[in-house]
């Protein structure tokens, strides 16, 4: 009996040790992916800065320019864009986002018909597919670790079109903002309409070909698309960080369990030995 429990505990220790090996490997994989995602975020910045500066330049030098994306209008319907992940095992990365979003929406609207939802990432898609909400994308929009612009451009373009056609009057994005490796905050940010575009003031007078208005018409959608892409890169970095932290604590927990189990195992082993000794001694005593 006693040796039976000892064997059970030993099996359990072995199983936990194997799990901890996996979680530790996942932690390390996430750490290296996090570094890569951070690099991707850095690489993206000069592109965005260039774009931003140019648009600011156009707007500053031609004050009478107009664009639908810069005009506020009365909000009747809102488009939301949620950035979730494709894979789980990232702690509360997705669930916290869902909870926060549903809470905000419940406070703001009476029915689910007052807003549209665009979802990036399969986790979010499956979650909201089962619920009574208006989802814009009919397919899963993947957010792979090697995310590329073309993965998401279709959905974003659709949302921009909806805004231009006045089907929605504002677009708000929900994502996990990357603060540092142990902290990611769920953030809601308004993308459209744009309040201001800040850029370095260049003391150069540009010519615009074909015309300032046409240049602006081409650049604004590109600007929005890339702003969203930037949020996605940020969210991806958060995902890796969240998974890294989750796997780190999973490994720590496993180690604690192994420690406790080892203690139990030794106790059970000791108990078995003591019992055997008692049996032998009492057996010998009975023979006397």
């Amino acid at each position: 009996m006693a040796s039976g429990t000892a064997r059970d505990i030993k099996n359990k220790i072995e199983a936990t040790r194997k799990t901890s090996q996996i979680t530790k490997a996942m932690n390390m994989v996430s750490a290296s992916k996090l570094r890569r995602a951070e690099k991707k975020m850095r690489d993206y910045r000069p592109f965005m800065k260039n774009l931003q500066d140019t648009i600011a330049q156009i707007l500053n030098s031609n004050l009478d320019l107009q664009h639908k994306m810069l005009e506020k209008r009365e909000v009747k319907k809102t488009g939301y864009l949620l950035i979730t992940s494709d894979r789980g095992l990232a702690g509360g990365y997705n669930n916290n986002l869902f909870r926060q979003f549903l809470k905000d929406v419940k406070e703001k609207y009476k029915t689910n018909d007052d807003y549209y939802l665009g979802i990036i990432g399969s986790k979010g898609y499956y979650y909201f597919q089962a619920q009574d909400v208006n989802i814009i994308n009919k397919n899963i929009i993947n957010i792979r670790d090697d995310i590329q612009f073309i993965d998401i451009v279709e959905l974003i373009q659709k949302m921009i079109d909806m805004y231009i056609l006045e089907e929605v009057d504002e677009i708000i994005i929900y994502y996990n903002k990357y603060i540092n490796t142990i902290r990611q905050d769920i953030t809601a940010e308004k993308i459209l309409p744009i309040d201001t575009i800040e850029g370095d003031k260049r003391q150069i007078l540009y010519e615009f070909e074909p015309s300032p208005q046409q240049v602006l018409n081409v650049l604004m959608p590109i600007y929005i698309q890339n702003m969203i892409y930037g949020f996605i890169l940020n969210a991806k970095t958060s995902e890796h960080a969240a998974r890294m932290t989750a796997m780190k604590s999973a490994t720590d927990n496993a180690m604690e369990i192994i420690e406790n189990l080892t203690l139990h195992y030794n106790r059970a082993r000791q108990a078995a030995i003591t019992q055997e000794l008692t049996e032998i001694v009492s057996g010998a005593a009975a023979l006397k």
């Binding site: 330049q57 007078l205 615009f208 240049v215």
Partner: peptide, 16 residues
């Protein structure tokens, strides 16, 4: 819109 050339010391320009 067609073709356009830029050579050295062209005036500052933005082209889509």
């Amino acid at each position: 819109d067609g073709e356009q050339a830029i050579m050295k010391n062209h005036i500052p320009v933005v082209i889509t």
